[in-house]
């Protein structure tokens, strides 16, 4: 069997340059004008933990996790508990673009889940990491967010 080489932790500069723009975009979607302070705090938190990283896998979802935590702190709202037993609603990415401007009205957890899912194509396992929840809860938050977006959209239409 081939032995898989463990990827080296990249120098922080490479990690930072690779992710700084998309993290700012993500935080703008969640926080609007308040995004810049949260962006700086995200990368400072990443830096504080960077020399203790054990491996270089999923660094992208790791930094989204930190950004989500910072945004949640900023919004000062605890994640909503997921609703059980509700069927999962998914939308296509182009459909999401039409609804995206309404995400500001969603509760923070739903907003983060929807944006990570449809804005950044993250799999639910990684969204769950970002939200500190189970995969089912992440799916439920995104699903609930999409339904709420549709309702808002219909009201405005």
């Amino acid at each position: 069997m081939m032995e898989v080489m463990q990827a080296e932790i990249p120098p922080f500069e490479r990690f930072y340059v690779e992710h700084r723009d998309e993290v700012l975009g993500y935080l703008r979607r969640l926080l609007g004008q308040r995004a810049e302070d949260a962006w700086q705090e995200t990368f400072l938190r990443a830096l504080r933990a960077y020399d203790r990283l054990q491996h270089a896998r999923n660094l992208r979802s790791w930094v989204f996790t930190i950004a989500t935590n910072v945004a949640m702190d900023e919004l000062r709202v605890k994640p909503q508990p997921p609703v059980d037993g509700v069927p999962v609603t998914e939308i296509r990415r182009d459909a999401f673009r039409e609804l995206e401007h309404l995400t500001g009205d969603l509760p923070p957890t739903e907003r983060a889940a929807v944006v990570l899912r449809y804005g950044y194509d993250l799999p639910y396992a990684q969204i769950a990491d970002a939200l500190g929840s189970s995969e089912e809860a992440a799916r439920a938050a995104a699903s609930s967010g999409v339904r709420r977006l549709r309702r808002t959209h219909e009201r405005h239409a």
Partner: peptide
């Protein structure tokens, strides 16, 4: 640099 001094290279 990362290997010699640590990964927090900026």
């Amino acid at each position: 640099l990362a290997r010699t001094f640590g990964p927090r290279v900026l």
